[in-house]
Nucleic acid binder design. Structure first.
Length: 568
RNA sequence: GACUCGAUAGCUCAGCUGGAUAGAGCAAAAGCUUCCGGAGCUUUAGGUCGGGGGUUCAAGUCCUCUUCGAGUCGCCA
């Protein structure tokens, strides 16, 4: 909301200045760093430069114009300090505006309609079956899920796609290992764990004996051709893996609209190759078929010299399928930084094919999960299993509950919600492209900028709201003239702006940081102010404020994919 | 070697289109509970924004060179 006001001030001032001086000036409108400096500020240096008038004259002119803009009634005070014009809002009027706005839209406060009648496809999680579901997949899952929620809040229809890695040479490896040294009984009992062991062991053995790689490739080729024995095994592996993943998704509260994986596109790739041929984009090079993308980036390898297709071919087939099926306005791929080149190539190839929606393809890249500064690997044996992480986080939160609130009912259930939300929040609070040092200790440290801090704040507010039967009363807007209370109102009014920014950057961290700040403001307020006071008007006003803060905290945590907690 | 991304307090990170005295949390030190939940709050201390040069009235932010780290660079995904 404050952004709307800023934009209006900017537009109207520019209009008025341009009319008066017949120049093309750009007015910068921002928020000062310190609250004492006001709520909105305008550095006029750029205006001075264009108009070539003395600074005091420009300041006076702008101040004069500010008195005639459409939001003039909201302005309480205008100061000027060394080239900055500082606007202080009328706290009572602004608070009334914010509260009315909230009451009009309390069901879905902070939402907007930028995505109305638009569909977005988000490809996330997408684990490779028969390989471990690692902590790396967790990032894609959590980030993708949250971006989906945020875009729904912006009015988009969101299609959540789990592009399972259910095809590829790793199946040849797993099947080879299973047939040669697998224990059928063990595999039947714990399919995924055993299959992963077999896969890891295969890679260990392949270091010593290169020839088994060749055998694995042969098996995969047979699988592609439809060898019934291998197909049966493949189906078993896929089914069991998916069952296992569903458990994790349930814990995380994540759902998908489609589980069409790589295998689904297997019969759709020839058409892609044909189309590329038709458009004369394919070129034979060193026995393989490539699309040349110029000097800047390496060519896209479409078809291997043995005729089989590659990752990018599959992604092209998937993209066309999605465009035809969902007619997306944006296609997002929540995949790690290391695949930046791949998606760059994908986008370029689509562009060369003449599709204008190539610019709607966005790689939502994210940083690596590091351990001791190095990328985690599934091959070196030290696999960090997602399930174990979530379990440990839950265990630790149970320990905290036993210390802080031993009498709590359903401790285990709450501990799980807190622990998992802590892991989610820890991931999302950082800007997504940054690398991420994996440190369980810090993830579940329940002090400071953490998920539990947000949950705790919400639970605290709930406890106050539940403790009192409220009688209807007037709102005392005069209360909002106190700085620390107005600060909260101002933050409440920024929720919509925050969601828009978060969508534009495709980064849930924007919401996460905002919630931390809001919670912190509330906790400071709570330490200073008594809520349940005898004065009914004051009490009602404060309870209104609390309700808004709690709603936003809960809604924001929901956007991040965190669980709601009633008591903790 | 080429390209991409990153480097801000001891640690983990914010810092929007360049704007005022660079901000949080953790860790450290000191406090706060007759009263609505102390997983909280308040205060102190902590900085050559990797380094050099440049553009600008103004640079953590833009340009350039450089150091370090990570990632990628045709038959894996």
């Amino acid at each position: 909301m404050i952004n709307n006001i800023k934009n209006r001030i900017k537009k109207e001032l520019e209009q008025k200045l341009n009319d008066k001086f017949d120049q093309n000036v750009i007015v910068i409108v921002e928020e000062p760093k310190k609250a004492e400096q006001g709520d909105i500020s305008i550095p006029v240096f750029s205006v001075v430069k264009v108009l070539r008038k003395p600074l005091p004259l420009v300041v006076e002119t702008v101040k004069e114009f500010l008195g005639t803009i459409s939001d003039a009634h909201l302005i309480a005070k205008v100061d000027s300090v060394s080239g900055f014009i500082n606007i202080t809002l009328d706290k009572e009027k602004y608070a009334a505006l914010v509260i009315n706005n909230y009451n009009l839209n309390s069901e879905n406060y902070g939402s907007n309609k930028m995505g109305l009648n638009k569909t977005v496809c988000i490809d996330y999680s997408s684990p490779n079956i028969a390989k471990p579901f690692s902590i790396g997949h967790l990032r894609s899952t959590i980030i993708g899920h949250s971006i989906g929620n945020i875009m729904e809040k912006c009015g988009y229809k969101v299609v959540r796609i789990n592009h399972l890695g259910d095809f590829g040479t790793q199946f040849g490896k797993t099947i080879y290992a299973y047939l040669n040294w697998g224990d059928e009984a063990k595999v039947k009992e714990h399919p995924v764990a055993e299959l992963v062991k077999l896969y890891v062991e295969f890679n260990d053995r392949a270091k010593i004996d290169k020839s088994i790689e060749e055998e694995a490739r042969k098996i995969f080729t047979e699988l592609e051709k439809g060898n019934p024995k291998f197909v049966e095994l493949w189906e078993f592996i896929r089914e069991e893996s998916l069952k296992e993943y569903m458990k994790v998704y349930k814990l995380l509260g994540v759902q998908f609209d489609s589980y069409n994986g790589e295998a689904f596109y297997n019969d759709k790739m020839l058409a892609v190759v044909d189309e590329l041929k038709e458009k004369s984009l394919l070129k034979k090079d060193q026995g393989a078929m490539i699309v040349d993308l110029g000097e800047q980036i390496p060519p896209a390898l479409i078809q291997k010299s043995d005729g089989s297709t590659l990752y990018i071919t599959r992604d092209l087939a998937a993209l066309f399928y999605r465009k035809n099926t969902y007619n997306f306005s944006e296609a997002l791929y929540v995949v790690g930084n290391e695949q930046k080149l791949h998606f760059n190539q994908l986008q370029q190839v689509v562009g060369l094919m003449g599709y204008d929606y190539s610019s709607d393809i966005h790689h939502i890249n994210f940083g690596l999960v590091l351990q001791d500064g190095k990328k985690m690997s599934t091959r070196k044996g030290k696999i960090v299993k997602l399930e174990d992480v979530l379990k440990e986080a839950s265990k630790l939160s149970l320990k905290y509950i036993n210390e802080k609130n031993p009498g709590l009912k359903n401790k285990e259930v709450t501990a799980e919600k807190i622990g998992i939300s802590a892991v989610i929040f820890n991931d999302l609070k950082n800007y997504r492209t940054n690398d991420f040092e994996f440190n369980l200790e810090e993830m579940v440290n329940f002090v400071g900028q953490t998920g539990p801090y947000l949950q705790y704040t919400s639970v605290r507010i709930k406890s106050i709201l539940d403790s009192i039967k409220e009688s209807q009363s007037e709102i005392d807007y005069n209360l909002f003239t106190k700085d620390h209370i107005f600060e909260i109102i101002k933050n409440i009014s920024q929720y919509e702006d925050i969601i828009i920014k978060s969508k534009e950057e495709y980064s849930p961290s924007v919401v996460a940081k905002y919630l931390l700040n809001l919670a912190s403001l509330f906790n400071s307020f709570y330490a200073k102010e008594k809520v349940i006071v005898d004065d009914l008007v004051e009490r009602h006003t404060k309870l209104c404020l609390l309700r808004m803060v709690k709603d936003i905290l809960d809604d924001g945590m929901g956007l991040l994919g965190m669980s709601a907690i009633q008591k903790m």
